[in-house]
Design a protein around this nucleic acid. Structure first.
Lengths: 108, 108
DNA sequence: TAGTGGTACTCGGTACTACAAAGTACCAGG
DNA sequence: CCTGGTACTTTGTAGTACCGAGTACCACTA
């Protein structure tokens, strides 16, 4: 699939929220997860900027833990604000995707 | 629905292409059409920048015609490149939306 | 005839986001 | 020691939707 970067704007952050909401995890693993979910071109740098943004906006709780396989990992978990943001994201996604699919089917 | 601007990035241009593909039309009418289709906050300035971009990228054919109801209108129609771009857009949209919905349903 | 409101397009600047690129650092195995 | 996989940081760039202000045409009306 060719370049999706513009289309990912606004949705990739929601995807990261969803992954974190499923289980406490860390940046490197999130990137790998996204890749295997079909977001093949998403790279680490992108995920880390999103994680820093989530942290700055107070949507996640961060815990640093040693790894054994390399440098220490920063684990991310959703807090209440994060869960709320995730729900908002899905509401927006549903709204937008339904409008777009309507448009495609002749526009009603 | 609250702010969708980030989520619209990469998709709004495709929506405009789809509308133009349906019938030859012009900026002001496209804005009104988007608004009634549920893209309520899209404003004229945004549509015009998209139209100029489409023209610059050689995806549309432009014809200026007098209006009777105000200043002359610039009518836009898809050319072959535009139709191809529209098909690519829908392919990307299908790909992306299916991945996102998969992710939502537990992630396989 | 001046004023208002709807139609219609242009242009300069801003904010936000995904991504590129380069670097730091930890650890295991040869 | 040196390579390769793991793991995070930082700076800068490009692309897009949006804002705001401006220009201009026309119909209607007081």
């Amino acid at each position: 699939m060719d370049d999706l970067t513009e289309m990912l704007k606004g949705t990739l952050e929601g995807c990261v929220l969803e992954i974190i909401g499923g289980e406490e995890t860390y940046g490197y693993a999130i990137t790998r997860r996204l890749n295997e979910l079909g977001f093949t071109d998403v790279v680490e740098g992108t995920v880390y900027t999103i994680l820093l943004r989530l942290e700055k906006n107070g949507l996640v709780q961060v815990t640093k833990r040693p790894s054994g396989m390399g440098p220490p990992r920063k684990f991310y978990a959703l807090n209440d604000a994060g869960r709320e943001e995730l729900a908002t994201f899905w509401a927006k996604w549903e709204y937008l995707s339904s409008r777009i699919n309507n448009l495609r089917e002749g526009g009603r």
